[in-house]
């Protein structure tokens, strides 16, 4: 059972993605901001993190950098969910340590391929 932590502050987005991923057989845990994400990752050690970048309290980029700085999570697969297909957004996400990124609105088959790609790598 693959466990994914979904970090997303928008309730509707979180609910929609949770439902879609759960029906594909993933176990989803959700967090609404970067700080909550760090706590939940430490507590439950998910297999992969899907993270919106514009988060309250601690944003996605900062959260990513913290995860990469910690030896326990330095290789945890992270997929960034960014608002738009901007080159700088991808570069920023990759620079912060994200393994991959996908833009919103989410192309679900593409997201699944990316998850699969990271988990089997």
């Amino acid at each position: 059972m693959t466990r994914i932590l979904l970090v997303e502050d928008n309730e509707m987005n979180r609910d929609m993605l949770t439902r879609r991923l759960e029906r594909k057989g993933f176990t989803i845990e959700a967090a609404g901001d970067g700080e909550e994400a760090l706590k939940k990752i430490a507590a439950s050690q998910p297999d992969l993190v899907l993270m919106d970048m514009n988060l309250p309290i601690l944003n996605g980029w900062a959260t990513c950098r913290e995860l990469r700085a910690n030896p326990a999570t330095e290789s945890l697969p992270i997929i960034a969910l960014t608002a738009h297909a901007m080159a700088e957004d991808e570069q920023k996400a990759r620079a912060a340590g994200c393994n991959d990124y996908t833009t919103k609105p989410i192309d679900f088959p593409l997201l699944l391929a990316k998850i699969d790609n990271l988990l089997t790598a």
């Binding site: 509707m12 987005n13 439902r19 608002a83 738009h84 919103k104 609105p105 989410i106």
Partner: peptide, 12 residues
Amino acid sequence: RNAIGITKGYAE
């Protein structure tokens, strides 16, 4: 974009 993205997501 967000609102429409959610709508599209639920429909899919």
